[in-house]
Design a protein around this nucleic acid. Structure first.
Lengths: 210, 210
DNA sequence: ATTTGTGAATCGGTTCACAGCG
DNA sequence: CGCTGTGAACCGATTCACAAAT
């Protein structure tokens, strides 16, 4: 966006702040301070202000931030002011849970295509979307204006699938498989390797004697 | 462990390396270089060596690392050489998917207790474990030697539950709810807010004009 | 009086470049 | 000669402290 490069961690925190602001909005609270946001997000107030500072001046000194305005700014900053189409690849247990997770639709992410290779599943509905086979993947991504892919297939199939997605012009991938994916620079890739997170917990448990 | 503090990112990468080493082990390959590990994990070789350097010297100059030895060292470092008992809270769609995810058991994480408040679910099996109600939570954690809790309940219930878990002596929490949890310093907490990750992707999509 | 916005200092992780060793 | 191990330089994010604004 701006001239400066925005730290990944900053964007992640902005994503957290939006949820709190939405809550305040629903409660009818109209003003909030950086220290209140900080408390809710479990960070410090200076960090909140610095995070916002990357994008402009949204507050009033001595007063704080107007909740509705700040919320609107953050939605714009994060690109959440519009619908984005998502393809889900793999309708296993995890994939099914993701397909039905309301937290995606709440923020404008519409899973409009679900793919699986199991003939038993093809043709059956998962939520409001009918599961389809892999054929014509590339065409569907183009025709249906899909920007984001969620991969929840076994690790061994993930890289091949990612290659096809990239060739089809996908812009972002959320990878739930434990496979490390290689994609071109321009593709936005986030990994969500759950066993890796458990290993991280395990490490800390083994070294609690700090 | 050592005198130095280990970067979180380093531990996360070690967790990734283990998967690759396991694969090499299964393929019967017995030597590997830092650059091969780097390639597999999509990082650079210096980073791999630096990550290992925090914990000791595991390689042979001019040769590389013996796969089985390095794998064993990493298991020890990450505390994966023993079984850890896990409690799963919330047997909804996501919770059920997690309960049945083989990636946990593969690394020694045994979900031995599953809790839900829905009377319809209580008493029914999920995998090999029978779902139980919330009563006696604290006692179960103590008696069953549970170290890790996975929270997959609605956000509004997550903090109250976390408080009980902490009081019961839980050591680590993996939080799949979008609620930011407040726990004492000594508790190891990792958040897995999926909608926050989608928001992150959305931000990058909106600002691809780098 | 209060709270934001922000340059400057600090801290910590990454990268580099090469010494050390087989 | 090849690859590891590692101090040092670099870079970027966090924290600090205070000026600016109402």
């Amino acid at each position: 966006l701006r001239e400066k490069k925005i730290p990944e961690a900053t964007v992640m925190r902005l994503a957290i702040y939006t949820r709190y602001l939405k809550q305040l909005l629903d409660e009818g609270i109209d003003t909030v301070s950086s220290s209140e946001i900080a408390e809710a997000a479990d960070v410090d107030a200076a960090k909140v202000r610095k995070d916002l500072d990357y994008f402009g001046e949204f507050g009033t000194r001595g007063v704080g931030y107007k909740v509705d305005e700040l919320y609107g700014h953050l939605l714009k900053i994060l690109g959440l002011h519009r619908i984005r189409n998502v393809i889900l690849l793999g309708a296993g247990r995890l994939g099914s849970a993701l397909a039905l997770y309301p937290g995606f639709a709440d923020w404008g992410f519409r899973i409009n295509t679900i793919i699986d290779v199991d003939p038993q599943k093809i043709g059956k509905p998962l939520g409001k979307v009918v599961i389809e086979g892999l054929e014509g993947l590339e065409r569907k991504i183009g025709e249906r204006d899909i920007e984001i892919a969620i991969i929840s297939v076994p690790g061994c199939e993930a890289q091949g699938l990612a290659d096809r997605l990239v060739a089809a012009g996908i812009k972002a991938i959320l990878n739930f498989s434990p496979q490390v994916l290689k994609v071109p620079e321009k593709i936005v890739l986030k990994n969500f390797d759950m066993s890796a997170y458990l290993k991280l917990l395990s490490f800390h448990l083994s070294n609690k004697s700090d």
